[in-house]
């Protein structure tokens, strides 16, 4: 890497950043759109869930008696699980209200949950005194829908900004001859691409940070993990999305085709990446496809870091997948890149 390479790269990066900053409408949209989504979801899903949710073991499905009466109630939704205690995290986050183990005559509640308090009253009423019920209590603040959806919205914003900001912009420059003019200067494709990705990456990270700080100030997300790890997760995710944008634009000639390709790629990613809702219990094929989405790995890792205090080691598998995806796709994009 010589000084000319660096000077070319810096000049191209600086110019691209200036262009992006001056494209006020797009810039504002990238900032305003996620805020709009978060605020909308915060209002739309502000209320408590109407039903009580209890996790119970599968084998208890046919059992009768007091437990049967307690669980077969129209106000209660039972989530039958092979391993109910795997849902202790959800209980801590108020995503379920109670876990029961009828065979062990035991139940788990979150002592900070009003729903759990009411359910316990009903359970004790139905079972009657002296039943030897074993009560386990844990603590934890509730996770609101807005908390859950927030990492996904950030991921969504990263994806669209990267795909349109790099992919579409490159195709436009190819169409109007700017790329051809740059080629005539002898600038190498690697310098040009590195500068494009670097400029967009820098801007994306600044935008994510601004959004994060701003929205966290308003909604007070219960973040318990490391911000450094979270930044690494989003950095890797942004690289993967930028690489995807580069691949889509590598040799695409028309803006119409570029828009079609971006939509063709982005919407399945949106649906498969648990941005709006969990795919738990979905068809195994969907679950399999989800695993292939770098966006899902990024969002899943971000949620784990934010709300489960996952460490860098914990999210290493997701990070590895996302970085691997970025490297492979970027290499492919670089190989297919055409100035014209």
């Amino acid at each position: 890497m010589n000084s000319l390479w660096l000077s070319q790269c810096w000049a191209l990066m600086r110019s691209r950043v200036l262009e992006m900053l001056r494209d006020r409408a797009t810039l504002m949209w990238n900032l305003v759109f996620p805020v709009f989504l978060i605020v909308s979801f915060a209002f739309a899903f502000d209320g408590q869930r109407a039903r009580f949710t209890i996790v119970a073991p599968q084998q208890f499905d046919l059992m009768t008696g007091g437990w049967y009466e307690f669980l077969h109630n129209s106000l209660i939704r039972v989530d039958w699980q092979d391993e109910p205690l795997e849902s202790l995290d959800k209980l801590a986050k108020h995503q379920v209200d109670m876990i029961v183990d009828p065979l062990g005559n035991a139940y788990w509640i979150n002592q900070n949950s009003a729903n759990a308090y009411l359910l316990e009253k009903v359970l004790l009423q139905i079972m009657g005194p002296n039943q030897g019920l074993v009560r386990h209590r844990l603590e934890g603040e509730p996770i609101r829908y807005v908390d859950w959806v927030f990492p996904g919205i950030i991921g969504l914003n990263l994806m669209f900004s990267a795909l349109w900001g790099v992919g579409y912009a490159l195709v436009r420059y190819r169409r109007n001859g700017v790329l051809k003019r740059l080629q005539a200067t002898g600038t190498s494709a690697s310098v040009f691409m590195f500068a494009q990705l670097g400029a967009r990456l820098g801007l994306l990270l600044v935008m994510v940070t601004v959004l994060f700080i701003g929205l966290d100030w308003v909604f007070e997300f219960p973040v318990v993990g490391s911000f450094g790890t979270l930044l690494l997760v989003y950095l890797a995710g942004a690289c993967a999305m930028l690489a995807l944008g580069l691949l889509l634009a590598a040799s695409t000639q028309s803006e119409e085709l570029a828009s079609g390709l971006i939509n063709f790629i982005s919407w399945p990613l949106v649906l498969l990446s648990e941005i709006w809702f969990s795919l738990e219990g979905a068809h195994p094929l969907v679950a399999g496809l989800k695993q292939a989405s770098p966006l899902w790995h990024m969002i899943d890792a971000a949620r784990a870091v934010m709300y489960d205090a996952a460490t860098l080691t914990d999210v290493l598998p997701q990070l590895g997948y996302v970085i691997g995806f970025a490297v492979v796709v970027m290499a492919l994009g670089a190989k297919l890149f055409k100035w014209r």
């Binding site: 262009e19 494209d23 700017v178 051809k180 005539a184």
Partner: peptide
């Protein structure tokens, strides 16, 4: 070149 755009912004 015959027809080249300049960087927009």
């Amino acid at each position: 070149f015959q027809a080249t755009a300049l960087p927009d912004k």
